Computed example of a mutant assay.
Amino acid sequence: MDNNNHETGRAQLELHLGQQLNALLSASHALHVKTAAVFDPNLQPAAFLLVRWLLAYGPSSATSLADSLAMDRSSVSRLVAQLKKAGYVHSEPDPHDRRGVVLSVTDLGRDKAVLAMNEKGAEFYDRISGWDDSSLEAFIQMLKRFNGL
């Protein structure tokens, strides 16, 4: 195979990789939207992102949430107000800065988030349930390598 054919073959492989990554990202987004609707169909999916972040990393200020999720601070404030009204998030004075407020997930928010994430997990595991262990291990290793880990 000459160099030109190799480059054309490589370009085709990279194109196919891009298509599969786009499919993965699209499917991930669709699954997130579906999971957020299980959490609360009356809220925007971005509200569920806030709850998941608070569950994963603990209490936080709205500013830290916005920075961590690369979201506009006004959008975070609006979503937090909706989450508080629904009883999923509560706020209390920041013990380190009494002028600030710390947000955390309520028991109701935690219970509903766990329910939603369990449904998401079930759909994820359905996709890999027919894979043998060696295929799953190879996939994990390739993802690690792709992610630079």
Score class of each variant (00 low, 15 high):
26 S>P: 02
84 K>C: 10
118 N>F: 02
63 T>E: 03
102 V>K: 09
28 S>A: 12
78 R>C: 05
139 F>P: 00
42 N>L: 11
8 T>A: 15
129 S>M: 10
88 Y>S: 01
113 A>P: 01
148 G>W: 02
135 S>Y: 15
97 D>P: 05
85 K>I: 04
120 K>W: 10
33 V>I: 12
75 S>W: 06
59 P>L: 06
17 L>N: 09
24 L>Q: 12
134 S>I: 06
106 T>M: 02
113 A>W: 04
56 A>C: 03
84 K>T: 03
85 K>R: 11
27 A>C: 04
20 Q>W: 08
86 A>F: 11
66 A>L: 01
16 H>K: 14
30 A>V: 12
27 A>W: 02
111 D>P: 00
1 M>W: 09
23 A>V: 08
35 T>C: 01
92 E>L: 10
100 G>M: 08
15 L>Y: 14
54 L>H: 07
17 L>P: 08
5 N>E: 08
147 N>S: 14
108 L>C: 03
121 G>W: 02
100 G>P: 03
41 P>I: 05
29 H>Y: 13
107 D>K: 14
120 K>M: 11
31 L>D: 12
28 S>C: 04
13 L>S: 14
66 A>D: 00
6 H>P: 00
9 G>N: 13
115 L>S: 06
90 H>P: 01
101 V>Q: 14
45 P>A: 01
122 A>L: 07
138 A>W: 06
70 A>F: 13
33 V>W: 04
68 S>A: 15
60 S>Q: 07
16 H>E: 12
88 Y>W: 09
149 L>N: 12
105 V>T: 05
22 N>G: 11
140 I>W: 07
80 V>G: 03
73 R>N: 09
